[in-house]
Structure formats: C-alpha cells, structure tokens
C-alpha cells in the first residue's frame, strides 16, 4: 500500500514538474496566437536558443545557473522583438498556409544556425556546474524526489502566479485580455495592439527561453533538433488549452504533462500514444480547446 502511494506520488510529482515546463514554454505561444490569430510553429526555436545560451554561460563561462536563465530570457526576448519587427509582421495578414510554412522555414533555419554555432552534439549541464540546492534528492519521508524537479515545480508555480497577477491586475494585462477577446474593439478603444503584440511576443519568447534553459535537465539534454522534436507538444498544449487562455494553457499542460509521464512510466514502449489520443479526444469534444471561447 505504502509503495503504491509512493509510486503514485512520484509519478504525479514528475508529471507536474514536466507540466510546469510545458506551461512556461507554451504560455507565450498561446497568448501571441490568441492575440494575432496567427499560427507560429517556430516558438520552440526560441526555447532551443534559450537552452543553448544557458548551457554555454553555465558550462563555458561559469555563470551562476539562475543568472544564466535571466540572461537567456533577456537575450531571446530581444531576439524575439527583432524577428517580430523584421519578419513576422509581414505575414500576420497572410493566409494560414503561408504562416505555417513561413514559421516552419524559421524552424529549419534556426536548427541550422544552432548547429553552426554550437555543433551537433547533445549538450548537458554537468551536475557540478549547477548550484548545490538543485542537486541531489529531497527526502519526502516515504519517497525521494530530485531537488531539481522540486525547483521546477516551484519556479512554475511562481511564474503562474506572476502571470495571473500581471494579467488580472495590471493595466497592460487588461489590455492584453481585451485584445485577445476582440482585437478590433480593443483598437477602437485606443489600445495600441501593434505595440502590445511586440511586448507580448518579447515576453513569450523570453519565457520560452527560460523554459529552454530550465528544461535541459528535465528533457535529458539539448540537441539542435529540439525545435522540431518538441514543436508538436507545445502546439498541442496551446490547442488543448484554448488559444490565448492562460488558465486553459495551465490546465492543458498539467493534464498532458502528467498523462505523458504516466504513460511512459507504465508503458515504456507505446507510452507516447496516450498524449496524442487524449489530444484527439479533447479537440473532438471541444474544438475550441478546454477553456477556449466557443465559435
């Protein structure tokens, strides 16, 4: 009995840690897609670049892991602004097909660029390079839990809380909500949605980078194909949660993260099956996503 409880708790906690990672990376994608109604498949590229910046700073330059995450956030947020202003804005009004292909093109190029800069070998942050409190296990009494994953859950919780506060309580947050709800209406109320979008895009890219850095230890290393390998999972979280809906993205990440982890735990071969099955069923029953607005 005790063992079952310990197992269940472990699966749940590992699942939640993974879910937090999914949330941190996907939430920016969800808001930008909800805001501009355009399909962006290249979001994972920002996470990937964030991961590489982090790993380089920590292992190469000896920068503290947490500081490296902050730097990755800033660097990639700036990169996001540059890309948004120079390339993305040309395709907002284009048909969906153009957006899909354009952003796939960006993914391809980012994979190439990352390989040119960092090469093909998988990267990891060696344990000694991590701050002490992120290594080893926490003793929960009935089971052991890796400190890094506990930190992941904690960081996820803080970010969720900050985002909810920012969106519900600040003026910018209210503007974002209004623009997601009805962009034309928001514009006629004097909200500068172009500016708003650049801002949200930067924030979303930065969050993705943060996730990319945090995820290295959880996803078992970093490869240049990251942007392709995880492209679908981020999109699934966004679609299942409902476009532009932070709460939806959160619960979708939780649902899919736990299911994916549990699936792979119980069925090491064939476990990947579940996440797609669940996605299919959810979107079938609620095409607008769990928390999306109907119609």
């Amino acid at each position: 009995m005790g063992e079952i409880l310990a197992n269940a708790t472990t699966i749940l906690l590992f699942g939640i840690a993974y879910a937090m990672l999914l949330f941190i990376i996907s939430v920016g994608l969800s808001i930008t897609m909800g805001l501009m109604g355009f399909v962006n498949l290249a979001h994972g590229s920002f996470a990937m670049v964030g991961g590489y910046v982090t790993v380089t700073l920590v292992s190469g330059e000896g920068v503290h892991f947490l500081l490296a995450l902050v730097i990755a956030f800033v660097v990639v947020a700036l990169l996001g602004v540059i890309l948004e202003k120079s390339l993305y804005r040309w395709i907002y009004r284009r048909p969906e097909l153009d957006q899909v292909l354009f952003t796939i093109g960006i993914v391809f190029m980012s994979v190439a660029a990352v390989t040119f800069v960092w090469d093909n070998n998988p990267r990891n942050i060696p344990t000694p390079d991590l701050p002490g409190f992120l290594t080893g296990n926490l003793d929960l009494g009935f089971t052991q839990f890796p400190a890094y994953r506990a930190f992941m859950i904690l960081a996820g919780g803080v970010i969720v809380a900050a985002l909810f506060y920012g969106l519900e309580r600040t003026r910018i947050g209210a503007q974002v909500r209004a623009a997601v709800d009805n962009r034309r209406m928001a514009e006629s109320c004097g909200i500068n949605t172009t500016m708003l979008f650049t801002l949200v895009f930067a924030l979303g890219s930065g969050m993705a980078a943060l996730g990319g850095g945090l995820g290295i230890q959880i996803l078992g290393g970093l490869k240049p194909t990251f942007a392709f390998d995880f492209l679908v999972i981020f999109l699934i979280v966004v679609a299942v949660g409902g476009l532009g809906n932070i709460r939806g993205t959160f619960f979708a990440a939780l649902l899919l993260g736990i299911i994916d982890y549990a699936g792979n735990y119980f069925l090491p071969s064939g476990g990947g099956f579940f996440i797609y099955g669940v996605t299919f069923i959810v979107l079938l029953l609620r095409p607008q996503g769990l928390f999306g607005k109907a119609g």
Partner: peptide, 15 residues
Amino acid sequence: RELTLLMLTLALTFL
C-alpha cells in the same frame, strides 16, 4: 477549423 484542424491532422499522424 484553423489551428484545431491543423493539430488534429498532426495528432493523427503522430498517433
């Protein structure tokens, strides 16, 4: 439609 349709086609393929 749109993103949902795209995701369903993707999910089916991955499935």
